[in-house]
Design a protein around this nucleic acid. Structure first.
Lengths: 214, 214
DNA sequence: TAGATTGTTAATCGATTAACAATC
DNA sequence: TAGATTGTTAATCGATTAACAATC
């Protein structure tokens, strides 16, 4: 059996925006939506949208497009967004607090079951509905709550040490919002969000506006 | 005169991480750093680092690598990070507040001179040192403060309307943290940060760990 | 000197785009 | 029916990687 071709990263990144457009169509009562319409909405090429949507396995109908309800279901399914995923968050500073209060995540199945902070004044409090434990409790709470992933929003200089603690506690996936490149063994999955990259792109675009768009 | 070849987006996005590594070398007292060392630190290929650094115009020395101080200078220069850039921020919710308190931005020349919120209870207060005006004051304050860009951290459903207000007020660059695809004329520069894309990539990696890394 | 590293030119790889037959 | 849209196969484009002479 030949291995299913892996989905490209750019395709995966575009799927959430397709989902938003298709959900809007659903709210508008549409039964079908064409790749052309999605493409116009997002300023993409129709062929790219069709190719991307192929990964969901939903087949479209000539002249009508893709069935809205099944498409929403299939995108969510592909992204694993229609099942619950337990997470912990370490570092309840400005950014950590913001993420705890971001309703979008909950809609995508992300459920933060515990937060941690090194700061004693935060420990024992509740931030956006999530209880804050001392950082020393990571191992215990992970053992009890069995989260699938950890969201890392600590200061950069403690990022590696906290990641270490998380890995020792058994965490195998880390969503890294620090600007530290974590040293991790190959079996640990790390997704790094980098605001500085975004600022860099914006700054270069502002200086030299003909840099490519996406 | 042939037009200077445009720098690719992936290259621009990697430059900030190079900068962090090179700055660390400077703090360690190193005079030179090789592309190989940078590559190891970031798990990249040395050839990619060398090619990327070529855009800065700094030339390396065989056997030694790149001179640390000039390289820091040149990367900052390329990104426009060694001059001040005035910005306003609209929407002082969780995320907006987090960004106002993010010290990294200041280090890269971003200076938020005013914030705005539709919520009367926030108006007149100071968030992380930045005064919060009513949203109606956008036009006035832009006229007075002459910011180069606006950071958009409002709820998605008001994103397009606020963007409209900003553009009418004369703003030509928008750093968009909402998940709304803004409708803007071609001369307006928009940089969209998409946390959902990041979550999508993480979720797919967790399901199917052999997705490409970066 | 010997050998690690640079910078350039060429090859490869992968993603986007084009072309077009099939179809509702 | 006519024609818009799909899905597939092929062509193009651009980014990454390889090869290697130059050099300190």
């Amino acid at each position: 059996m030949k291995p299913a071709k892996l989905t490209s990263l750019p395709t995966i990144k575009r799927l959430p925006s397709y989902l938003l457009v298709v959900e809007a169509a659903a709210r508008a009562g549409d039964e079908y939506i064409s790749g052309t319409v999605i493409a116009n909405e997002l300023e993409l090429e129709p062929i790219q949208v069709r190719k991307d949507l192929a990964v969901t396995g939903v087949t479209g109908t000539p002249r009508r497009g893709f069935p809205v309800r099944p498409l929403i279901e299939a995108i969510n399914d592909f992204l694993g967004w229609n099942r619950e995923r337990r997470a912990i968050l370490v570092g309840t500073g400005n950014l950590g607090t913001a993420l705890l209060g971001y309703p979008e995540f909950r809609r995508h199945g992300l459920r933060v079951v515990a937060a941690f902070d090194a700061e004693p004044t935060k420990q024992g409090t509740t931030v956006n509905g999530v209880f804050v434990y001392p950082a020393e409790e990571i191992a215990n709470v992970v053992k009890r709550e069995k989260p699938e992933l950890a969201i890392l929003t600590v200061p950069s200089d403690s990022a590696q040490a906290v990641a270490q603690t998380l890995m020792v506690a058994g965490i195998r996936s880390i969503w890294n919002f620090t600007n530290t490149k974590l040293k991790t063994p190959p079996e640990v999955i790390v997704q790094k969000e980098d605001l500085s990259s975004g600022l860099a792109v914006l700054c270069v675009k502002m200086r030299q506006p003909d840099v490519p768009r996406s």
